[in-house]
């Protein structure tokens, strides 16, 4: 029972982080039907920015929660700028070409960003300071749920709620849904397509950057390569949940997190990834659109 509890908590944490990254994949796909493979790198850049910002802000005298939140804000804004720039440089010029072109461009961007950080920052592992302050009431059960895990859950829930509000109840959200449904029709109705697409990249990148900060605090080390595996898993989660669907991405991420955690716990961590991907294949065989995705009917 104790093992089950620990694995459940571990799965929930993993799933939350995957969800933060998966949202970026699924939102971009929903709007322009592109798999943004550079998204994992945005997560990595978010972690690096948070590290640099926390050092600078710490020297300016910030500490505790203020430091965590301001470092997160800087990381989110900076990563959002990266997301925006990547869209402008690598995807916008290719918007009207064949579907494979922006995909290749995305893979190229991912490789470029990885190597850029390796050269501009460091090829080595960096120590990431644990910015999350001690939480008193958690101290007695810290061996079950520690402060970082609690913060990861709370922040993820908060950001999900905020994102849902934006998508469901603002003009921007309305425009996003309109573009996702029918881009040409939305344009004819006066929606500024470019701005909506940019806003999607900004939102997705900011979420990934927050994920980078949280996992940095939790694992206490980062390097230029952390985006690859995390991005891959988040992409899987997005497909699992039904790519294009926002609640689907969250559900897919949680399913993946739990599957990996229980597979590692009850079978063997040798098979952690095997179980995760077998699950993906099975779900796609039964429901090709993913858990909450709509099976698209081909328009003639």
């Amino acid at each position: 029972m104790e093992l089950f509890r620990d694995l459940f908590i571990s799965g929930l944490t993993k799933g939350s982080i995957y969800a933060l990254i998966a949202l970026g994949y699924t939102m971009v796909y929903g709007i322009i039907a592109l798999i943004n493979f550079a998204h994992g790198e945005i997560y990595m850049i978010g972690a690096f920015t948070a590290l640099i910002a926390s050092v600078i802000l710490g020297q300016l005298g910030l500490a505790g929660w203020g430091l965590l939140i301001s470092a997160g804000a800087v990381a989110a804004i900076y990563a959002a700028m990266y997301g925006l720039t990547v869209e402008k440089i690598a995807y916008k010029p290719l918007r009207h070409s064949s579907r494979i072109a922006p995909l290749i461009s995305a893979i190229g961007m991912s490789i470029f960003l990885q190597n850029y950080v390796q050269l501009a920052q460091t090829p080595n592992f960096l120590i990431f300071p644990d910015l999350v302050p001690e939480i008193d009431f958690l101290a007695p059960i810290a061996h079950i749920v520690n402060k970082n895990q609690l913060i990861i859950w709370l922040v993820t829930i908060f950001l999900m709620a905020a994102l849902t509000l934006i998508v469901k109840h603002t003009r921007l959200g309305l425009a996003m849904r309109a573009v996702a449904q029918d881009r040409d029709m939305a344009r004819l109705s006066g929606v500024n397509i470019d701005r909506v697409i940019s806003a999607t990249f900004v939102l997705g990148s900011a979420l990934a950057a927050v994920g980078g900060l949280l996992i940095g605090c939790y694992m206490q080390q980062i390097d230029f390569y952390i985006g690859f595996l995390a991005g891959m898993k988040a992409f899987t989660a997005a497909v699992l949940g039904g790519i294009g669907s926002i609640p689907g991405a969250v559900l897919g991420a949680l399913v993946l997190g739990f599957a990996e955690s229980f597979a590692a716990g009850y079978i063997s961590s040798d098979y952690e990834d095997v179980v995760a991907f077998v699950l993906l294949i099975l779900i796609l065989i039964v429901r090709p659109g993913g858990l909450l995705g709509q099976t698209q009917t081909q328009k003639v």
């Binding site: 595996l229 716990g265 990834d273």
Partner: peptide, 20 residues
């Protein structure tokens, strides 16, 4: 006796198992 995938987002699961 197990192999661990390197570069994971977290190592919680294997740590729980080790504890258990």
């Amino acid at each position: 006796f197990e192999g661990v995938t390197t570069g994971q987002v977290s190592y919680d699961a294997v740590v729980s198992k080790l504890k258990n």
